[in-house]
Amino acid sequence: MSNTKKTLSRTSQNILKIDTFSCVRCGLTVSAAAGDGIRRNHCPSCLHSQHVHDHVEGGPSDCQSRMSPIAIAVLRTGDWMVIHRCVRCDELTSSPICADDNQLILMRIAVRPLAQPSFPLETFGDL
């Protein structure tokens, strides 16, 4: 029994290893497995994702449209999460970043609130 389960998990690992998807925005063909063997859910080049899972109801979503990265969240452990928003139905998801994600775009999302402040930040220099 355990042997069967082992074989199954190894098969799924192998499928993950050879599985690829193409990014809905930039068209880059990416391997589904990230460097450390976990399944990736966004394109490492443009960080865009696809809306395949319904988070409010649960289960697969029938939206299937593009999700664009809008924010960087920091966990208590210091790990970064990228927050995606569906361009069609405005659903939000969060997912951990991978080691080979485009650092330039990650950094651009992280500094965007400070680059476009909605109120003057000069007063904080006095604190």
């Binding site: 809008i70 924010a71 960087i72 969240a73 920091v74 927050i83 939000l92 965007r112 609130p113 476009q116 909605s118």
Partner: peptide, 13 residues
Amino acid sequence: SMSVRPDGEWMII
């Protein structure tokens, strides 16, 4: 976290 809409409006997540 904090996000910015394309028109410069800050959004709290």
